[in-house]
């Protein structure tokens, strides 16, 4: 029913006004996607990988032995993929000899991009593992295991799976170390400022 000019009748409410009057909140897709992503602690995946860049470059990337897991160090390989917060489509991939140490990477992190996938190098005893780790499910991709040391009577399949399990155990230890920092007040008081200083020095 069209409003009539000069008739004194009010115009029809817009859809936006009707939604507001009904008490329903209009859904902002970007916000909703962001909220879903932050649910259930999934944001920790990208925070872990982003912290790992700092830890590898500024602190040497070392992790002390714990239980059955021997000490190891993590470094960054040839490729790092970063993304902005959910709902904002900006993705950056940095490649090269050592993108983990590059000013471009620090610049991206300083701007709010976090690491969603990275090529990593894990060295433990005399073994070297190369792989890509994705933040969402901690999927392992393009894994190159250390050369097998199988004796003739050993099963190479068993050794292959054992090495994979060892890699998994080391990554869980690295994540546990990150989580121990992340859940303490020291994260905000000490670690984040240290990351800021590291970014400042390199950008």
């Amino acid at each position: 029913m069209a409003a009539q000019k000069g008739s004194g009748k009010r115009r029809e409410p817009t859809l936006k006004e009707e939604i507001a009057a009904s008490g329903e909140t209009p859904v902002d897709a970007a916000r909703e996607a962001e909220r879903a992503d932050h649910e259930e602690l999934r944001f920790l995946g990208r925070e872990f990988l982003t912290w790992l860049v700092y830890h590898a470059d500024a602190e040497g990337g070392g992790f002390a032995a714990s239980g059955e897991v021997a000490a190891f160090a993590i470094g960054f390989g040839g490729r790092v993929m970063l993304r902005t917060a959910t709902g904002m489509v900006t993705e950056v991939t940095l490649g090269g000899a050592s993108p983990g140490a590059s000013p471009d990477l620090r610049y991206a992190i300083a701007g709010g991009l976090s690491v969603k996938e990275a090529d990593l190098l894990l060295v433990q005893d005399d073994r070297e593992y190369r792989f890509a780790l994705a933040a969402e499910h901690f999927d392992l991709k393009r894994v190159k295991l250390p050369a097998l040391l199988t004796d003739e009577e050993d099963d190479p399949v068993d050794e292959r799976l054992s090495l994979l399990a060892a890699l998994d155990a080391a990554l869980r230890l690295a994540y546990a170390r990150f989580l121990a920092l992340r859940t303490r007040p020291g994260w905000t008081r000490t670690v984040v400022p240290a990351i800021r200083a590291w970014l400042d020095a390199g950008t």
């Binding site: 932050h38 917060a85 709010g112």
Partner: peptide, 14 residues
Amino acid sequence: LEPTPELWSGFAGV
């Protein structure tokens, strides 16, 4: 735990 603001929105001043 909440997401670290700086890691998601950037480090102001840097």
